[in-house]
Design a protein around this nucleic acid. Sequence first.
DNA 1: CGGTAATTTCGGTATAGACCGAAAAGAGAG
DNA 2: CTCTCTTTTCGGTCTATACCGAAATTACCG
Lengths: 189, 189
Amino acid sequence: MELTPVMEKFIVRWGEMGGTWGINRASAQIVALLYLSEKPITAEEISETLSIARSTVSTDLRELQNWGVVKVVHVLGDRRDHFETLVDPAEFFRVIVRERKRREIDPLVQALREGVVEAGGREAFVRDRMRDMLEFFEILTGVYDRTEDIPTSLLLKMAKQMGQLPLKTALKIAQLGDGLGESLKRLVK
Amino acid sequence: MELTPVMEKFIVRWGEMGGTWGINRASAQIVALLYLSEKPITAEEISETLSIARSTVSTDLRELQNWGVVKVVHVLGDRRDHFETLVDPAEFFRVIVRERKRREIDPLVQALREGVVEAGGREAFVRDRMRDMLEFFEILTGVYDRTEDIPTSLLLKMAKQMGQLPLKTALKIAQLGDGLGESLKRLVK
DNA sequence: CGGTAATTTCGGTATAGACCGAAAAGAGAG
DNA sequence: CTCTCTTTTCGGTCTATACCGAAATTACCG
């Protein structure tokens, strides 16, 4: 597969970002390539196009499949596996967030819960600090959980609408404070 | 400074997480220690307590100050700098998000804009894919921008309220779709 | 202006983890 | 069953970067 300069630039940059997102560079590049590809491609082809060792491609594809961002596709009359990635960026993003929450946030919350108990009354200050931290994460995951059951397309529309609100309006909504919950419920009645 | 087992556990875990969040372990541990400390402490003390080289502490404190999560405090009659961190987890979190957006998302968006132009009509498929990606990030940053001007305390209250909504209600709100914007505007009138 | 306490700079080392390539394992086809 | 194509496993390097310690710099005191 031949890469145009535009494609190459995108893939390189995407790869760089991968590192900071808990995905290694090679994996990120693979996803980028699949994302730009019109049809599913083989591991061999990925390896050649990106100059990544065949074995690395194999390992990383496996990892990406575990994450649920890459799928195998079979082509009639071809023994080789062909791969494709999610085409909807939002879908892709959700997977990343979901996984990172599961791997990083959830264990932390668990640890904080235990810590608060262990600190007990004996270390009141430490306990309170940990409790604050815990409370914050619980609020955060609370909001996240609300989004879990909403289809991506709807979520996107929501985000779009919210992003287009005048700043003033956004602020006013925030100022509803504790009344916000009730207001929203009334809104959909 | 003496660490209790509870404190140590928290600091270690926090340090581990730091790596995956674009903050190195030492820096993350330093923040954790400061977070658990009742009063500002010196670099020397941090170095001893965490067994991190004095120079590393210095470098990392500088970095953390740049990020805006650590501040210097001066104690009367003491030439040494004392350090403290933000006490509000939400505040802390906002700083992290703001910085990462600036360092990672913004440049990517910029690159995508350029890429879309360069791809032009000649590489329609690639251009469309990049355009999709760009559009997604623009929606995302749009929502984020709306939150930037809202004080943390309000934002937290908002989050809390949203997290406590029944799933059904959350879904209904999402289903307002394109009407959501107008509904929200009416809500605050 | 010394002198000392405190901080920062900087070159070198250690370490984690990504990546490679050879070899093993697996999967059809004849 | 064996031969070939494909994928996976695994031990060894290679690389980025975190971290260290000595030396330089800065800040402040008497």
